[in-house]
Structures are given as C-alpha cells and as structure tokens.
C-alpha cells in the first residue's frame, strides 16, 4: 500500500501542529508537510510577540515613530483594526500591552501607559506601508495570525484528496477522511481537558474553539486570561467556550474569539447574523447552539462505540 493515512506533528508558534493526510504516498507527504511547516515558521518569525527578532516585536518597540513593515504585517494589523471597529473595541490588538504587563510575552517588565492606547491610535500609511503606533502601544494579533497560518499552510496540501491540519485545537479540514467518511471532530470540555462534550462531522471546513480556560494566570492577586475585553480592559466572563464552524479556519477562529469577547448577548447576536454553525458553553454549563450546528453533530456514543 503506497498511499494511506499519514499523521505528522511539528512544533511551531508555540503549539503542536498535527497534520493528517489521506490518499497520498509517504514521500510526497513529507515534502508537503515540510512546506506547511515552513509556512508556519515564517508566520511565527514574523508575528511572534515572544521573539525579540520578530517583525512584530520591532513594530512594538518602534516607540511612536512611523515604522516600515512588510505587506503581510500591514494587512494583518489592518484586519485587526477592522475587527476592532466592528466590535466597538471589544477586540483590540492593543491587548498586547495588557498581556505584556502580566508578564505574558514581550516586552519584558512592561508597564503600560495610562490611559492605554487603543486601535484608534494606530495610523497607517498605505503608500509607504508604514504603521505608526502610539507611544507604549503593544500589539498582539495572535488570534488572527494562527488561523491565517493554518489556511495558508493548507495550500501546501493542495491536490491531496483529504487532509486535516490541527494547530492547538483550531482545525482545517479538506475533502474526506478514510473511505469517504467525514472528519469527526470532538469539542473539548472546557472544565475537564480529558473530556469532550460533543462531536461533529465536517468536510472542507474550518473549526475553532475559543475559551478562557487555557491561557490564564494570576497577576497582583487578580486572575486573568488571554481574552481581554478591551472596552473594560478586563478578562471577560459569561462564556466558557465558543466553537464556530466556517469555510475557513480564520473566519471560524475570528468569530469564536469575538464571541467570547462580546459576551453572551452581543456574541450570539453576531453569530446569528453570520449564520455559521456555533456551539457555546456558558459559565453555568448551559449550552447554546444553532440548528446549523445541530445538523453537523454526531452522537459521541457512536464514535466511541466502534471497538477495535
């Protein structure tokens, strides 16, 4: 058998990237995986707030001066500002300053200016590709960048009959799994990482789950997590976990993140407007999902019953 199902894992952007390829021979798969890994590493080198050599860090320490950036950086920051405008600043790439002040990522020993600069303080020069930040403004576009990397890395697998890229829980699927089956994706239980709360079958779709349960810590006696509502500059609450299915992983991830940031009422209203399948777990364990999601659901009992 020269073709089959191949699994490969590489490490990039601080996460495990798990690729599953169906219907491709091992030699070609290795080349494709190497290409995908290269794409991830390029994103990491450019957009990491944890690397002093990254283009993002150079921008973040440009200290209020016009800073020439790559077209990729320019587009990503523009995209972040557009999302900030759509959400009245609940999402704001300036969250980097808040996270850095907690000691999460660079710059080190960062004390954010008061008042904290917002997305409105970012100015763009479209003809020279220059971005000017406010003094002491630190950007973190990570929530957009990772899923973008997944979608672009998926291009490395073009022509492969079926594949899945799973980068730290954000997943892109293409084609079918073995024997024409859908990709069965489970949703992690935000309260118990060893458990799942449901599963769904998808193809040619991205799925992302955003939650307040993985990246968190304590600073000055205050609990924080990485999703900060920049309108209040506090970590949000109300929704434990938001899962969204969309044509691209980037859209799924963006909508999932924004749902958490917007909170229950505004978040669900936005999801309803998009019409995308969604599945939310609220702080009290209550589930909110739409009919589009229910149509994709697969009973977990069916998936764990096929004993080997």
């Amino acid at each position: 058998m020269t073709t089959g199902t191949l699994h490969r894992v590489f490490h990039s952007m601080g996460i495990a990237v798990h690729c599953t390829l169906v219907g491709i021979n091992a030699k070609e798969a290795e080349e494709r995986i190497a290409e995908a890994e290269k794409i991830f590493n390029e994103f990491d080198l450019r957009f990491s707030r944890f690397k002093e050599t990254s283009e993002l860090h150079q921008l973040n320490v440009s200290a209020g001066k016009a800073h020439k950036v790559s077209i990729e950086m320019f587009q990503v920051i523009k995209k972040c500002v557009a999302l900030a405008e759509q959400t009245s600043g609940a999402f704001d790439p300036s969250v980097g300053g808040v996270l850095a002040s907690y000691g999460y990522g660079l710059p080190k020993d960062f004390t954010p200016p008061s008042p904290l600069p917002t997305y409105r303080d970012i100015s763009f020069n479209d003809s020279t590709l220059e971005i000017t930040l406010a003094s002491g403004q630190v950007l973190e576009p990570a929530s957009v960048v990772k899923s973008m990397a997944i979608d672009i890395a998926a291009q490395a697998f073009r022509g492969v009959p079926g594949f899945m890229i799973n980068a730290g829980g954000d997943i892109m699927t293409h084609g079918k799994f073995e024997d024409g089956a859908l990709w069965n994706i489970a949703i992690q239980d935000p309260r118990d990482p060893r458990a799942i709360v449901g599963a769904l079958g998808i193809e040619n779709a991205g799925i992302a789950t955003s939650g307040v349960y993985q990246t968190h810590g304590e600073s000055k006696g205050q609990k924080w997590h990485h999703l900060v509502d920049m309108r209040t500059q506090e970590s949000t609450s109300g929704i434990l976990s938001a899962t969204v299915v969309a044509p691209t992983c980037e859209q799924a991830d963006t909508e999932a993140t924004l749902t958490i940031l917007l909170g229950i009422t505004d978040g669900i209203a936005r999801l309803e407007r998009t019409g995308l399948p969604y599945f939310l777990i609220l702080n009290d364990g209550l589930v909110k999902k739409n009919a589009a999601f229910a149509a994709l659901e697969v009973p977990v009992g069916n998936l764990i019953s096929k004993s080997a």
Partner: peptide, 8 residues
C-alpha cells in the same frame, strides 16, 4: 475521532 477542537 480525528481531532479535538479546544482552546489553544
């Protein structure tokens, strides 16, 4: 199950 979607 081919993948688990969860927070990063």
């Amino acid at each position: 199950i081919q993948g688990v979607s969860g927070a990063t």
